[in-house]
Design a protein around this nucleic acid. Structure first.
Length: 118
RNA sequence: CGAGCCGGCCGGACGGUCGCGGGGCCCGGGCAACCGGGCCUCGAGGAAAGUCCGAGCUCCCUGACGCAGGGUAGCGGGUAACACCCGUCCGCCGCGAGGCGAGGACCAGCGCCACAGAGACGAGUCGGCCUCCCCCGGGAGGCCGGGUGAAACGGGGCAAGCUCUACCCGGAGCAAGGCCGAAUAGGAGGGCGAUGCCGGGCUCAGCCCGGCGCAGGUGCGUCACCGAGCCCUCGGGUAGGCCGCACGAGCCGGCGGGCAACCGCCGCGCCCAGAUGGAUGACCGUCGCCCGGCUCCGGUCGGGCACAGAACUCGGCUUACAGGCCGGCUCGUCGA
């Protein structure tokens, strides 16, 4: 059974991540991550207004969430991860976006060998 | 058949594998709060958009009247209300079906009237004639005329100019507003506390250092250590949570009234998104439509499928939009 994705909600969590997290960039996305001191990893997605209208921003955010969901078994626990979409992410296919997220998570060093898929 | 006008409607379909939000029922654990699981069901739009009008609903303002400010504008009707809708009159446009119209009042006042024209709204005079004055070239007054123009010593036009008239309008908005409410700090009341003692120092009504005592410090006992405050109650507020928040001027069908907008009755008909860092998704297959290439005309390959995403809820308006369906009507051509 896959663990449901937990998303960041409290403004204080965002502020903490902004202050203590490290970020890695790619032409499509930026990933900011930091330790949260918990036994699980929490996520947040940012799709700013400069990407386009509500439909476009919704689509990008939903794709990112789906990508993270599919990747969840390979992500180490104990992190807060913020994924920021950049304008170029609007036009690319699902797998291009997934590869970009994967590369940045790898550069953060928070990918692990796939746990026993339950 | 070809041009065109009006009204209404749809706006990809079906299936599979993972996934998300709401609601209901059931099972297991637990005193409970709650935790874990299963099944069923619902889950974006005609514009959800712009936030331009009108309301409901909240809170604020003692009430009434007036002023200021804003809005509406033939007439009649519909409606909770409207700037919306329907009917109708008038004006303009179109051969026509039809379309468009801020369509009350300039004998209350102010203001403006392009171009042309000498002159355009109390000021000026292009030409001719008459009278008068005089320094003989002009001046003053009067009459007539051509031309310009929508309109000329004289009667108009304009209120999407001010204004006047009639009628309407309090303000802010669901981040409205209501309830619950930690931790920490501070407030009020009450209770329990050695309300200390000794020595030393200093910049000496006090402060600092050391020792002994003492409430309290873990639910209790003992030991060690810390040690001047500790405990209870109340009220306000913050983080956070809940309500508002999904049954309504609701939808569907039938009958009746009305030219219509719309209204009434009936069914014991239907329940139709409720997120809150914000669910409604990802991938795949089949079919449909559009574009392009190849073609043995059977197909086949590749790409695309609009505008656009609920945020308190309704009624409108406006704007965006690939493609398509249905109905009524007009004009033209041909045939009967």
């Amino acid at each position: 059974m896959a663990i449901p994705l937990e998303t960041l909600r409290r403004p204080a969590d965002f502020a903490a991540l902004q202050q203590h997290g490290r970020s890695r960039a790619h032409p499509l996305v930026v990933v900011r991550a930091g330790h949260n001191g918990l036994d699980r990893t929490r996520y947040a997605f940012s799709t700013g207004r400069h990407l386009g209208g509500a439909v476009i921003r919704n689509r990008v955010r939903r794709r990112l969430r789906e990508i993270v969901r599919a990747l969840a078994p390979r992500i180490a626990p104990g992190w807060d991860v913020l994924i920021v979409a950049r304008p170029a992410a609007v036009a690319v296919r699902y797998d291009e976006l997934r590869d970009a997220v994967l590369a940045l998570l790898g550069r953060h060093g928070i990918l692990v060998a796939e746990r026993c898929a339950g």
